[in-house]
Computed example of a mutant assay.
Amino acid sequence: MRKQTQASYVERIGRVLKQVADNVDAPLPLAALAETAALSPFHFHRVYRGIAGETVQETLRRVRMMRAGYALRSGGRSVTEIALEAGYESPEGFARAFKQGFELSPSQYRKSRAATPFRPTNINIHFRPETGEIRLIADRKEHGMKVEIKEVEAQPMLALRHLGPYHEVGRAFSELKGWLGKQGLDDMVIGSYGISYDDPESVAAADLRYDACAALRAGAELPEGSLPDGMRFDTLSSGRYACALLEGSYTGMQDTFHRLFGHWLPESGEEPDARPCMEWYLNDPMEVSEHELRTLICIPVKG
């Protein structure tokens, strides 16, 4: 079952790469790529990056640049023409990006005896500029984590929306906790969660959406009147989650998500569903030292 599932994910990403190869110079909407991969748009970017080793946009930029390098060495077209084909509005912008990738200027690259590799190289995707083929090289890696499937029950909760970089969500939790304390509701809180709606590698930091959440005991009564701006009464999504324990600094969250999506999921026999990812905070950073922090990193999987 696990081998079949892994093969399924490789085949899905292969279909996406075929779509990219056929549309290198055209817009590639997220929804269309996610549909091609038969994955939720919520999780497509993380699955793609975990398996391919880079984002779709990074693949597209690299393919265009490698195609430009091939064009420089295989014909008499001008640098300006090649730059425009690669999506750059000026030869100067193209030259800067080209040198950053190849460590040579376009003119130096055209005259060099041997083609230098594009940097950074990516071991999971192979592009042949002479044919336009983009191929995934399946790469099995040890994910080095213990993953447990947990059934999470629906729970009433207060959620405070944070918009911006994920590393700044601590302020939302502090505001939420402070408001609960002022209302005398501390004893009604039975869990602390974070709901992340976007992949920080694919969405601009200023546009990232995150909910700082406090799960409440059943029957908890909120004070009369409107809630503060950005705060709402909601329900924690129920269902199955694949959870990995992160011990220590919150800076390890992104790597844990990356390994869950890129290495554990394709080998697991599980399928992600459309619910957002979740962080389940098992202790409070105000009460324990950083190395004592314990957080469950959870991705939703189908029942």
Rank of each mutant, 00 (worst) to 15 (best):
1 M>W: 06
4 Q>L: 12
8 S>E: 10
9 Y>H: 10
11 E>P: 00
13 I>C: 09
13 I>Q: 06
15 R>V: 00
15 R>I: 00
25 D>W: 02
27 P>H: 15
33 L>P: 01
36 T>N: 07
38 A>K: 12
39 L>G: 14
43 H>Q: 08
50 G>F: 00
51 I>T: 05
55 T>F: 01
61 R>H: 14
63 V>I: 07
63 V>N: 04
67 R>K: 12
69 G>K: 06
74 S>G: 01
81 E>R: 14
84 L>R: 15
86 A>M: 14
88 Y>S: 07
90 S>K: 05
93 G>P: 00
106 P>E: 01
107 S>A: 15
109 Y>E: 03
110 R>L: 01
112 S>Y: 00
116 T>S: 15
122 N>G: 04
128 R>H: 03
129 P>E: 08
133 E>P: 06
133 E>Q: 14
134 I>G: 09
135 R>E: 11
138 A>R: 03
141 K>Q: 15
142 E>H: 11
143 H>W: 04
143 H>I: 03
148 E>R: 12
148 E>V: 11
150 K>G: 02
169 V>R: 01
173 F>A: 01
174 S>Y: 11
185 L>V: 14
185 L>Q: 13
190 I>Q: 04
192 S>G: 11
195 I>N: 05
198 D>P: 01
206 A>W: 04
214 A>W: 12
214 A>P: 03
217 R>H: 05
221 E>C: 11
222 L>A: 13
225 G>K: 09
227 L>S: 14
231 M>Y: 14
232 R>I: 08
236 L>P: 00
239 G>I: 05
240 R>N: 02
240 R>A: 10
241 Y>T: 00
244 A>D: 02
246 L>F: 12
246 L>Q: 14
249 S>C: 06
253 M>P: 05
261 F>A: 00
261 F>S: 02
261 F>P: 06
265 L>Y: 05
267 E>M: 11
270 E>K: 13
272 P>M: 11
272 P>F: 04
278 M>T: 10
279 E>Q: 15
281 Y>M: 01
289 S>V: 00
290 E>I: 05
293 L>W: 09
295 T>I: 13
298 C>T: 10
299 I>R: 03
300 P>G: 00
